[in-house]
């Protein structure tokens, strides 16, 4: 295992840790809104770290750009979804 792989493994483990944190928050927090906090923030940090690990492994600018794009779109999907879910949880079902 070379230096590059080492960095990727560290990033990957950190990413998995944040995914775990998101799930733990999802299961432990008491209300819908707090669970949303855990999911959006922890999972997106997790996705960012996993993407960073894969970009280091691939060492190719095209793949890195694609990974960055996927991360940004995931961020967008997560914030929009979080806002819509939070709004409906507050207002109730119409």
């Amino acid at each position: 295992m070379n230096f590059q792989d080492g960095i990727a493994v560290v990033l990957l483990i950190a990413g998995c840790f944040f995914y775990l944190a998101g799930t733990v928050g999802l299961l432990r927090f008491g209300d819908v809104h707090s669970r949303l906090h855990a999911l959006t923030k922890a999972d997106n940090l997790g996705l960012m770290l996993v993407c960073a690990a894969l970009a280091v492994l691939a060492a190719d600018w095209r793949i890195s750009a694609l990974l960055a794009l996927i991360w940004l779109l995931g961020l967008l999907a997560a914030t929009v979804s979080a806002h819509l879910i939070a709004r409906h949880a507050r207002r109730g079902w119409e």
Partner: peptide, 22 residues
């Protein structure tokens, strides 16, 4: 900020006494 946010919420999720005050 998103790093801080993720770390903060992970810390709160793992703490046994759940230090959240929604």
């Amino acid at each position: 900020e998103s790093f801080k946010g993720g770390i903060d919420v992970a810390w709160r999720a793992f703490r046994p006494d759940l230090p959240i005050n929604p």
